[in-house]
Each structure stands twice: as structure tokens, then as C-alpha cells.
């Protein structure tokens, strides 16, 4: 990969993290404040999603008019449309963890870079969780067939 392509990837990560910092999403209290609809509700996270989706909704359509990305031959966009059990059970498991800690993967990585100890613990546990899924749950008996299907859609979630 060219130096320019690497720089673009790096710049994407910097912008993404800057957005999380500016919007306050690197504070678990802001995230839990949004999820606490029966308490002192803080709708900020909802507006973060509105801002992010608003920009990307338009940009996605403009970019997809191109035949290829700048540094690649094809677009790698998930094409699956099936709503399987794994999708919503996985999302539900993720949601419980998100509510418990107030961290999802992006803000946790940014806060771990900031040296926040709770984020470092969370990221370490998250890494182990990903390995457990891959080697224990994913590799279980009938898992081989399921995995080949899952992997097709898992390319770039």
C-alpha cells in the first residue's frame, strides 16, 4: 500500500477520534447518560448519531458514484441482507456490555490512548472476548459452516 493510502487511513482514524472527543463520547458518563432514559436523560449521543449519519448518508451516495475508491480497485461494502439469529443476539450481547461500561470499541480505543485505566482494562477484556468468540464459540461443532457465512458479511463491519 502506498504512503498516501496509509496517510489517508491514518487521517481517517484521527478525524474519527477527534469527533468522538469533541462530542464527549470518550466520557462513559455521556454514553450512560443517553442510555439512562428513565433517569436524567442526556440526548447528546442521539445528536452525535444524527450528525454522523447526516454527513455520511450524503457522502456515501456521492462516493458510490465512483467506479472505485482512490486507493483500491473495488468497494468493500457488506452485501448481506438476511436478519439471522447471530445478528441480533450479538448486538444484544454488545448492548449489555456497552450499558455496563459506557464504552463501545471506538471511544474505548481513544480513551486507552489517553491512558485512562478503565479504558485499558475494558480494551484488554474486549480483546480476550474477541478471541473467545473466534476460537471457542466460532470454532464449535457446527460453527464451521456458520462461520463461512458469517465471515462473508463480516468483512468490514
Amino acid at each position: 500500500m502506498s504512503a498516501k493510502a496509509n496517510l489517508a487511513a491514518f487521517a481517517g482514524g484521527v478525524m474519527f477520534a477527534a469527533g468522538l472527543i469533541v462530542s464527549g463520547m470518550t466520557k462513559p458518563s455521556k454514553v450512560v447518560g443517553f442510555l439512562d432514559v428513565f433517569g436524567r436523560w442526556d440526548p447528546s449521543l442521539g445528536l452525535v448519531m444524527v450528525g454522523a449519519i447526516g454527513v455520511h448518508f450524503v457522502a456515501y451516495r456521492l462516493v458510490r458514484r465512483r467506479s472505485a475508491p482512490i486507493f483500491g480497485k473495488t468497494f468493500h461494502i457488506p452485501s448481506r441482507t438476511d436478519i439471522d439469529t447471530r445478528l441480533w443476539t450479538g448486538a444484544a450481547i454488545f448492548g449489555v456490555g456497552w450499558g455496563l461500561a459506557g464504552y463501545c470499541p471506538g471511544p474505548a480505543l481513544v480513551a486507552s490512548g489517553a491512558g485512562i485505566s478503565s479504558a485499558l482494562i475494558f480494551v484488554a477484556a474486549m480483546t480476550i472476548g474477541m478471541m473467545i468468540e473466534r476460537h471457542v464459540i466460532g470454532a464449535s461443532a457446527s460453527g464451521i459452516a456458520r462461520r463461512s457465512i458469517a465471515d462473508r458479511g463480516r468483512r468490514n463491519p
Binding site: A8, V14, M15, V48, M49, G51, A52, V55, H56, Y60
Partner: peptide, 21 residues
């Protein structure tokens, strides 16, 4: 702050799509 930060996140995702697909 939420809208500005969110816009940055959307722009970052768009940059990744445009450059790397």
C-alpha cells in the same frame, strides 16, 4: 458539540470510503 463531533465522525467514515472503499 454533539452535532459537530458527529459530523466529524461522519466525515471520517466518508474519507475512509472514498480513499479505501
Amino acid at each position: 458539540a454533539a452535532l459537530i463531533g458527529g459530523g466529524l465522525i461522519g466525515a471520517a467514515a466518508s474519507l475512509v470510503l472514498l480513499t479505501h472503499g
